[in-house]
Design a protein around this nucleic acid. Structure first.
Lengths: 333, 333
DNA sequence: TTGAAAGCGCTAACAA
DNA sequence: TTGTTAGCGCTTTCAA
């Protein structure tokens, strides 16, 4: 900046004011500085700036698994919303090597940068790990339900989404349905969805056949159970806790000569897999965009008014995507 | 750090040495400092550190679209490899709002952080945009072929991958094949793959039916052409430039009562869509993990030896995934 | 509207 | 093995 200031014939302080834009600067001076900066290819040093200013407009996002399309989309949307709000954002992810240690490391990377706010999109960091920093930096948990009395969160209404799907299945006249429910150890949100679907179906008087789906990478397992249930005429529909699981079931169904929804109705959940809409799945689209928007709004409120913003725990409902894999029950059971 | 040093009864310099770990510190002193840091919840200020040290071990990744599973995977793998190398990494993505302006903004965010190296995984930033910074910070372009004489790159061998698939199709006896080829404006890598597939097929003496796939979001378009070609008996296989396109074709095929590979053989390309392996696509898996590993190795070499590392332009071959959607040609054409 | 000067939290010689 | 000291590049009072 020294060089830029010299080239423009002003002091460093004035150059600083031009870039920061807080105090008024004479138009002529401003132009001279900008011109000098452009020709010299000057990019302000964020480090020095936030060091001197004791804080920055850079927000941090801690994301669990960029491989997961839901997180990828969240990343992308948050970035866009943050940009629109005139702030910046950098993202970190933990190393994939096993261990919560890397989550901490990623958290520290953000803390070390002294970000002006943190979005946390990982279930592995527990609330207690965040607690010490709540007074230092605004934290918004996003995409994962959080009930800590001091941590703000914006997440998806998994129970409501599951209920929407169960309602749709029941409304199509299905009276006996398989529900794939992975264990909680396997996937917390999927487990929760499965449980909620089953509960709601039962409220409709529908008979539920729970299908465990124990292993993670081999989603076929529950699939064979479903084929068996269908062959013996005990179900007319199968509900999956994610589009991914439903996708995994398709080749099995196809091999068995099943057509959805004529032979068997199928539902997924999520609606974010790229290209998934083209498959015509009946599913619920989680409101990633809205979550991003709300998360940024909450963050802004927190930053503007650090003192007393009441803790918010928002739950955003998804949207039922009718699709082509859910049809009327073929025959009364 | 002042507070920590005081609590441990040492000077700031000593505390610094403990965290930085360059110069030897007496074990007793070290423990005292660590203890003090722990109880005080101290996280070193990266800003101040890299300001004072004139540089940092933080690398930056500029990623085009975190929504794309190939980039998501690359992000994740780079993070892991960087961690293993004892370095750190932060990632930025441009806002999704239109315009190359946001790409620049994202680039500046990284530059402003004075990262110690940059991975660039976006086709939108052109080489000329990077040129001014090549002397300031090591740059490695990854996932996109780059031929700039001063910019290092590690990317996928799209032509080779396309050839592998074409070879497999020809080897299965197909003599007349549809090849979906989007325009370059639509997607550069997909266009390139389509062209390369067609070329290689022709070298095998196979008759190629090019299928344009003009619009982006509506991949069905080319699909109808393929169904027509198949109905009239003019093709026995269809090659898609990405798994995504193939996925989009599936519902059409299913609606038309087609089974792969009995009625029509199908191939994709990429192999990274989550859950895609379960569909049994015949495809090529792009070597994302290897690309990440090599990119980090190149980066380390650049950082260690800034002066004269000859520019590398690596092209990594993918792996053919046999799958179940490619079978022998049903009858001679 | 501008400049001078005092730090922000840390590292890196240099001395001790 | 440790302390002292001079900055790193910037922002921000305070005067002018």
């Amino acid at each position: 900046m020294e060089t830029v200031a010299a080239a423009a014939g002003v002091s460093r302080a004035t150059a600083s004011r031009v870039f920061h834009g807080s105090t008024p600067v004479a138009p002529g001076t401003r132009d001279a500085v900008h011109a000098a900066a452009k020709t010299l290819g000057y990019v302000p040093n964020t480090m020095a700036r936030s060091l001197a200013a004791r804080g920055s407009d850079i927000l941090g996002l801690l994301v669990r698994d960029p491989t997961n399309p839901a997180y990828g989309l969240l990343f992308s949307e948050l970035q866009t919303q943050v940009s629109r709000a005139g702030l910046e954002m950098v993202t970190v992810a933990p190393s994939r090597d096993e261990g919560a240690r890397y989550e901490r490391q990623a958290l520290n990377r953000l803390l070390g940068l002294r970000v002006g706010g943190m979005f946390v999109a990982t279930g592995v960091i527990r609330a207690e790990m965040l607690e010490p920093f709540l007074d230092i930096v605004p934290v918004v948990v996003v995409g994962r339900p959080e009930s800590h009395p001091r941590i703000h969160s914006v997440s998806y209404d998994e129970d409501g989404n599951a209920a929407q799907l169960a309602d749709a299945v029941a409304a199509h006249g299905h009276r006996s349905v398989a529900v794939v429910t992975p264990s909680a150890a396997n996937s917390v949100p999927e487990h929760r969805r499965g449980v909620a679907m089953a509960r709601r179906l039962r409220e409709h008087g529908v008979r539920v056949h729970p299908v465990a789906s124990p292993t993670f990478g081999r989603a076929e397992e529950g699939g064979l159970d479903i084929l068996g249930l269908h062959r013996s005429g005990r179900i007319t529909a199968a509900m999956f806790p994610s589009d991914w699981r439903l996708l995994a079931f398709l080749p099995l169904a196809q091999a068995a000569g099943l057509q959805a929804p004529d032979d068997l109705s199928l539902t997924g959940c999520d609606g974010v897999l790229p290209g998934i809409d083209l498959l015509g799945f009946t599913t619920v689209r989680i409101p990633v965009e809205r979550a991003a928007r709300r998360a940024v709004e909450v963050m802004r409120a927190l930053r503007d008014n650090r003192t007393r913003t009441p803790t918010e725990h928002e739950l955003l409902p998804g949207t039922l995507v009718p699709g082509r894999t859910l049809g009327p029950a073929p025959h009364p059971v």
